[in-house]
Write a protein that binds this DNA or RNA. Structure first.
Length: 269
DNA sequence: GTGGGATGGGCAA
DNA sequence: TGCCCCTCCCACA
């Protein structure tokens, strides 16, 4: 049940374990009927873009995986563990295995379908090649609340409900503020913050946003151990609790079918 | 034991 | 805008 940080981490780990090798592939619960097409083929690489994964076996043989709310991977060293639960996809070599359960989508894309998917995704803070300027321009034209725009995968890819709430808190911007009233400087600051927090979350395997902005995460250290479990988020799922900064009661509200959390004092409309 | 909610997104209407 | 997909966890009984 990940945001972009976890998806990119899966891509790195699965590529390290499986890419360049001939794989055994099956689908114990039958939820991926094309598994037999891949069995015995070589996985070339694993791509991550936003919350989407592509396991590339060939130009027109790309396994698209989107985990949605419930999907999750498990991985380990051979031998295979006993079959358990609704096991949609299983890939293994002589040394490593990966299991997929509960995904929203697991299906084969050809190169055209994969390209069309990437074309409709916005700037991904976890990709070196990301250009956020089109996203800034789009947001500056819209009356829609910034809290909705940040979650729109056509604008930014990989940001989910936790990062939405926390990035807006750290920028001291209310989720309800219209996009066109967010300054370019504020948008650049949010992007820069995302480009710092998301790689850190990738490495930590959890999203920690309560580190001060002026104390950047450095690779190779374990900074999350200095933060208690109660303090890893400023506002996400902290409704009815006091703001860690000003003490005001954190609020929550439905926004576009999802729950948004914010501090009514720190974050101004 | 049980019921509600959850890190998502596509689709119909 | 609301429903579906169909899983896991937690608070509460």
């Amino acid at each position: 049940m990940p945001e972009g940080n976890e998806i990119h981490r899966f891509a790195e780990r699965h590529a390290a374990a499986l890419a360049g090798k001939r794989l055994h592939v099956d689908s114990p619960n039958g939820g991926f009927p094309d598994a037999s097409l891949l069995n015995g083929r070589t996985l070339k690489l694993v791509e991550a873009y936003g919350k989407h994964l592509g396991y590339v076996f060939g130009k027109d043989l790309i396994v698209h995986v989107h985990l949605g709310m419930y999907g999750d991977f498990w991985e380990g060293k051979m031998p295979l563990p006993p079959e358990k639960g609704a096991l949609r996809l299983r890939m293994w070599t002589r040394t490593d295995w990966v299991e997929l359960r509960g995904a929203t989508d697991c299906s084969i894309f050809d190169s055209e379908k994969w390209a069309a998917l990437l074309a409709r995704l916005g700037a991904d803070p976890l990709r070196e090649d990301a250009d956020p300027e089109p996203a800034f321009a789009t947001i500056r034209k819209r009356k829609t609340a910034i809290g909705l725009l940040l979650m729109d995968q056509r604008i930014f890819a990989g940001i989910g409900n936790i990062f939405r709430a926390e990035l807006l808190y750290r920028a001291r911007i209310s989720p309800m503020r219209p996009g066109q009233e967010v300054s370019l400087a504020e948008l650049r600051s949010i992007w820069k913050d995302a480009c710092k927090l998301m790689p850190a979350a990738m490495e930590d395997r959890r999203i920690v946003t309560t580190r001060p902005k002026d104390r950047p995460h450095s690779r190779g250290t374990v900074p999350s151990e200095t933060v208690s479990d109660e303090e890893v988020h400023y506002v996400y799922r902290r409704h009815n609790k006091p703001c860690l900064v000003c003490g005001a009661t954190i609020k929550r509200q439905e926004m576009g079918g999802r729950t948004v959390y914010w501090c009514p004092e720190c974050q101004k409309a």
